[in-house]
Amino acid sequence: MSDPTARFRPLGRGPSFTLGNKLERVAFALVWLLLARWTPPQAHRWRRWLLQRFGAEIGAGARIYASVRIWLPRNLRIGADTLVGPGAELYNQGTIIIGPRCVISQRAVLCASTHRVSDPDFELVLRPIRLGAGCWIAAEAFVGPGVQMGDGAVLGARGALFENAATMGIYRGNPAVLLKERRFNPAG
C-alpha cells in the first residue's frame, strides 16, 4: 500500500511518483486493456483474479465491470459481494477501502487524493477513503478525499460528498447534506 502520509510536488522538484510506480500502472493498464476491458459483463471472476495479481484485495462474489477505471490496484480493497458498476472510477492514489455488500453505481468517482492549495507547487496529499458495509454510491456521484462512510450510508445520484457520512445516513446534493436516516422495511 502507498504511504498515506506521502506527499508529492507535481510542479516542484522531482517526479510525483517513482519510476517503479509508473511502470506498475502502465503494466496494469495494458493488462486490463488486453485481458479485461473487452470481456463480457459476466466475467467478474476473471477480472477479480486479474486485479488480485496486481495486489488488490477483492472479496468473494465482488463484481467489477470491465469499464471500471482503477489507478493502482494495490491501493484497493473491496469487500465480498460488492458491485463496482460500469464506468466507475476509483482514483486511488491513496487507499480506497470498500466494505462488503456495497454498490458503486455507473460513472461514480471515488478520489483518494487532493492537492495542498497553500503550496505554490500544489503538493499532492493522499487521503484514504473508507466505505462501511452496505453503502451505496449512486450514479455519477463523487466521494472526495479522506471521506469515511458509516455502514449503510447512501450518496444520491450526482451528489458530491466531502465530509464523513453517518451510519445509515442518506445524503444528496453538492455539497452533499444529510437528507434522512435510512430505514429498512421488514416486509421487504
Rank of each mutant, 00 (worst) to 15 (best):
97 I>G: 00
86 P>K: 11
107 R>D: 12
136 W>P: 00
56 A>H: 02
119 D>E: 11
121 D>L: 13
108 A>M: 03
90 L>S: 07
63 R>I: 14
93 Q>T: 14
146 G>D: 03
81 D>W: 04
49 W>H: 15
110 L>S: 03
116 R>G: 13
59 G>A: 04
66 A>P: 09
132 G>M: 07
98 I>Y: 00
76 L>M: 14
64 I>S: 08
92 N>R: 05
44 H>P: 01
108 A>H: 03
93 Q>R: 12
94 G>D: 06
84 V>C: 04
136 W>T: 02
57 E>K: 12
132 G>V: 07
48 R>S: 04
135 C>A: 07
43 A>V: 09
49 W>F: 15
139 A>I: 03
130 R>T: 15
128 P>T: 07
141 A>P: 05
100 P>I: 02
84 V>D: 00
103 V>F: 09
83 L>C: 11
93 Q>I: 15
143 V>W: 05
121 D>R: 09
97 I>H: 04
70 I>E: 00
110 L>A: 04
143 V>P: 04
62 A>T: 05
149 M>G: 10
94 G>H: 02
93 Q>W: 12
93 Q>K: 09
50 L>Q: 05
133 A>Y: 08
79 G>K: 04
111 C>F: 03
106 Q>W: 08
51 L>P: 05
81 D>T: 09
67 S>W: 11
65 Y>A: 12
141 A>L: 09
104 I>L: 11
119 D>Y: 06
56 A>P: 06
103 V>G: 10
82 T>N: 00
77 R>P: 01
91 Y>V: 11
96 I>R: 00
104 I>E: 03
86 P>E: 15
108 A>C: 08
47 R>P: 00
74 R>P: 06
134 G>Q: 01
47 R>N: 06
95 T>S: 10
42 Q>V: 12
73 P>N: 14
50 L>C: 13
70 I>M: 04
153 A>K: 01
80 A>F: 06
48 R>H: 01
131 L>D: 06
123 E>P: 01
143 V>T: 11
50 L>H: 02
143 V>M: 12
45 R>L: 15
91 Y>G: 07
60 A>V: 13
90 L>G: 03
56 A>Y: 04
54 F>I: 06
44 H>N: 11
152 G>Q: 00
125 V>G: 02
73 P>T: 10
120 P>S: 08
137 I>A: 05
85 G>R: 01
61 G>H: 08
55 G>Q: 03
145 P>S: 13
147 V>L: 06
42 Q>D: 12
136 W>H: 02
100 P>H: 02
141 A>Q: 03
69 R>G: 13
107 R>Q: 15
88 A>F: 00
112 A>F: 04
144 G>R: 06
54 F>K: 05
63 R>G: 15
67 S>F: 11
46 W>E: 09
81 D>G: 05
153 A>S: 09
131 L>M: 13
117 V>Q: 10
130 R>N: 10
152 G>F: 00
112 A>T: 03
47 R>M: 04
